[in-house]
Design a binder for these strands. Structure first.
Lengths: 152, 152
DNA sequence: TAGAGCGAGTTCTATTGTCGAACTTACGCC
DNA sequence: GGCGTAAGTTCGACAATAGAACTCGCTCTA
């Protein structure tokens, strides 16, 4: 049976899930954000099957999150760079980071790593807010509705 | 081959990916946030295999995002309610919503649905910021580092 | 100039996971 | 006693994954 696809669903969550709803794609993107560019860099860092890596990188290129660039003619060598769309995905990883840090470590323990601001050196804690009010998102105060003509 | 597990990885993104890195879990959670509670509600809304649904709901209960409650003794009837941990996952879906809305529709088009504030009725646009500064997250200004004793 | 090495994949096979349908259990109603 | 409903479990066909080996184009070295 073919995996169910959500890429033409009317819901933005479903479409995003179609894009990253497997165990390697978010991790591959994480590595891209950490500055990895070359096939074997990804492969060594993640020790995943080369076949799966090729498929995932290909998908991310097809979807426009990565750009496959020739950085050397002879012999031909490629690198994968984040596009504007790829960079725009970072907030999703940041939200995952926050949830994981807050909820996926045993009692009293915390993850060994943290995010820092390069300039100030201060720790950064991602938080999801409403862009207009600046208030933290509270699901109990939200509803989903049809798009308004002037909205969004 | 057994699927690679990330549930004991040192990276919060990897652990979160382990939890939701498949095609149905985020969608099941979305439905839970939309107020769905009963097995057949989920099944009818999503038309996914009952086997897969049972496995996913079970995992979410095991992980503490859903609570399985008996709401009727005879005949025995159950419902799945979001826990505090489950509610804490909403920001991740909100970030996915924003990315999907902004980037996964063809030129000039927009998704048919939108988020609204229940009280004000105004559209809500999720944005990921740094909790301390309130500034939007910019991956180019971040670095990952070892946790500081007083940090985080 | 033969061979080792490297980057970037592709191909192969065994094992798992997923889909969809059918089946089961436990009860309530008529 | 049979039908309906909630909440699953079981089953078989098919798809995806992991890991290893192989290919291809090229460079460097002895």
């Amino acid at each position: 049976m073919r995996r169910t696809r959500f890429d033409d669903a009317p819901c933005p969550i479903a479409r995003t899930t179609d894009l990253i709803g497997d165990w390697w794609t978010p991790i591959v993107l994480r590595e891209a954000f950490l500055g990895r560019r070359r096939f074997d860099d990804f492969q060594r860092a993640l020790s995943l099957s080369r076949g799966v890596l090729a498929q995932r990188l290909g998908r991310l290129v097809d979807e426009g999150l990565l750009d496959k660039r020739l950085y050397e003619e002879r012999p031909p060598r490629h690198e994968y760079l984040l596009t504007e769309k790829g960079l725009a995905f970072y907030p999703v990883l940041a939200a995952m980071w926050r949830f994981g840090s807050d909820w996926l470590w045993p009692d009293g323990q915390q993850p060994p790593v943290e995010l820092f601001d390069r300039e100030s050196g201060l720790p950064v804690r991602p938080l999801v807010v409403d862009e207009t009010t600046g208030e933290a998102i509270d699901v109990r105060k939200l509803r989903v509705g049809a798009r308004t003509p002037n909205g969004g």
